[in-house]
Design a protein around this nucleic acid. Sequence first.
RNA 1: AGGCUCGUAGCUCAGUGGGAGAGCGCCUCUCUGACGCAGAGGAGGUCGGCGGUUCGAAACCGCCCGAGCCUACCA
Length: 871
Amino acid sequence: MTAPSAPIPDRYDPGTVEARWYPEWERRGYFGADPRSPRKPFSIVIPPPNVTGSLHMGHALNNTLQDVLIRMKRMDGFNALWVPGTDHAGIATQVVIERQLAAEGKTKEDVGREAFVERVWRWKEESGGIIIRQLKRLGASCDWSRERFTMDAGLSRAVREVFVRLWEDGLVYRDDYIVNWCPRCQTVLSDLEVEREERDAEFVYIKYGPLTLGTVRPETKLGDTALAVHPGDRRYAAWVGQELDVPSVEGTIRLRVVADEAVDPEFGTGVVKVTPGHDPVDFEIGRRHHLPVRTVIGFDGRMTAAAGKYAGLDRFECRRRIVEDLRRLGLIERIEPYRHAVGVCYRCKTVVEPLVSKQWYVNVKPLAEPASAAVRQGRIRIIPRSWTRTYHHWMDNIRPWCISRQLWWGHRIPAWYCDRDGEVYVSRDDLTTCPKCGGALRQDTDVLDTWFSSALWPFSTLGWPDRTADLETFYPTSVLVTGFDILFFWVARMAMMGLRFMGDVPFRDVYIHALVRDAEGQKMSKSKGNVIDPLVMMDRYGTDAFRFTLVALAAQGRDIRLAEDRIEGYRNFANKIWNAARLVLANLDGYDARAAARAPRGLPDRWIVSRLAATTGLVRAHLRRYRFNDAASAVYQFLWHEFCDWYLEMAKVALYRADDPAARLRTQHTLVTVLETTLRLLHPFMPFITEELWQRLPRGDRAPASIMIAAYPRASRRQQDRDAERDMAVVMEVVTAIRAIRGEMRIAPGVTLAATLRPGGDHQALLARAAPLVEALARCRLTVDPRGIRPPASALAVVGPSELYVELAGVVDLEAERGRLDKELQRVAESIAFLEAKLARPDFTARAPAAVVDRERERLAAERARRDKLA
RNA sequence: AGGCUCGUAGCUCAGUGGGAGAGCGCCUCUCUGACGCAGAGGAGGUCGGCGGUUCGAAACCGCCCGAGCCUACCA
């Protein structure tokens, strides 16, 4: 692509630039990685967004951070791979298609399983790629040739392989267990899929024969098979082991009293009714005491035949009826209002019903131990560290993972049942006839939890179970970038599966980023209507500004409150860069890189090169530590407040004066090289504008064709120039002093001031040389004179050992100058008092490090000198 | 109940042991030949409170107050 030669507009227009470059990068294959490359690998797998998803702020932040890392590493010479893909998202996707069917007046049962699944696939092919296009809009430099989907043939094979091996090792099993059942979604939910919600309820105290107990679920009374008390509870010790005849809503029932640690004697009356069929705790108590399970609520949320005259009633309706009936029978002692957390389905918020049913489980305990150890031993680093505690806490208390789901969309469980001999066969290949008796087999109708396939993502996407070159090169991946909300769902399980099946951790670093909230700190949600749409922001301010905002706000361990004016601020930053480049490009006539490199460098040149080297070092150091916000602000600060505010202003002096062609040439050279380097430094954060401007700058013949594949800047020690930084500090201080006088005396910017500088110490040569710079930047005529005396009507400023007099006669009256000097004197006096007091304390001089004491002594001396001059 | 995070300028937030910072907003000035999406200058803070450690604390420790999040089987 040739550099556009059209005149450059004075405002940066992101739209056209972004539309031009992304397809071009993709076309040239810059995103692709080669497993045979000799370069050091650096790999990231994307947290796969749901196929049904549309880009939200969480995605935007997550993928921007990954793109910053991958672009930086790619430029830095690594064999960088970013694997993209999407997740089939079981329930979420199935719901989308069910809604479509509902609109046609059909249910999934009407069309049948096969046709339904086919329809989901069709939908996926047609409209499942929205989020992928949106990621491209964000500039994500993923290797799209490696795009994966969790239900791809390859990944499905990996899922089966893992399932079968875990089965063979006895870690996958079926069990009758109490599960979280959503009566609306008609499926089991894992513990992680159950959310807690505070709800108001009634705490009903019911008489159970001679005992009384409180419950919030009177309807489960019909499923009671025992009463329980704490083993140490003296009040009830006599009853333990006895059988009680308890009058109830349907005659008298007989209940045993058991003693169990799970009962809290302090709560309620200290007596619990035990309903193993409808409560997880009761289920455990039941197992310990061999109590029968009685199921009185069905999968549809209605009372079963076992509920007798209540059969067919909705569970909540039944609750009301039972309370009525109990009251009529005089069995209710009292009712108290009670607020407590109930479990609800994470998708539809229906109250979850604990039910006993046969489900598939993974015994994750043996997998959790190595995964826990990997973090403890530092083979996986979690950043920020504070999350390791949470990780371990969960791992240490991990419970069996229920992996079967009663859905149609997902990886079907590879288990077959023979009705004739009652056997279960788990197999890598589809089975049709029983290997033993030759009878017909039917496959389990359930599918696997979506997170089962996600857990394999880091190696399944690279070709496992085959031993591929990709796996060899890119596993373990370098870093995983994700939000804390899926630390357990996903990160922990990947750690377990990776260690189990690859024998190594799936990633070396886990960077956990914050949640993006609105400006008020509220979680963004559709129902609250406070959602900021990333696509709208990108349209309005440009992708680069949007990305930079996210990065600049991404401080570790803290949620991001996103306010739109912040994005606007970085839009202005993009425009600033654009215009800085325009200035440079407009002044390159006669530029000859080779000749320019030989011209002697002036102070501003040495200074800005030194500052750039320092900035480069900072950005690299911050990125290495995942301090994204610090890295961003380092470039921002340099580019705007050092390069634009100071260097460009100084460059104009050399650029616009015809009397020193060598200086002009040299300045052109510094402008070009510093800007070019800074663009490379900034590219991972703002990929589009940097490419566009970089293409317009003059480059050598051997330069790469794109900034994307140019080298990431390195800080060289040779470029650091302490003398230049120190000298420039003096010049800047003089300029600032004159400007401050102008501002505080309210002298119009257009007035040229007359100033005299009496240099002290070693300032004379420096200031004599820098006088033209000062004159230009501070709009004054400057006389540097070692024997200069302060004119009668003048403002005084002290710069280190030097004195500065700005003549005010005829410009302004001197009243204000007195005030200004008084203020300055007062500040100096306070400073001296502070330092004197500090240095007078023997404990300080004796115990503080010598360097600190010396520094304070120097400060004091400097302040005293300043005071003497001012006085 | 346990765990975690946060409380710094009007707002959003940096700042993990040596005299309080940035961006936005606010005030004054500027139609200076890159940029008004700009430039120059300025006002504004007992760093939530109380103790402690230290020569020295916004930072480290304890308690309290306030905000939020995560985990959890008090029915």
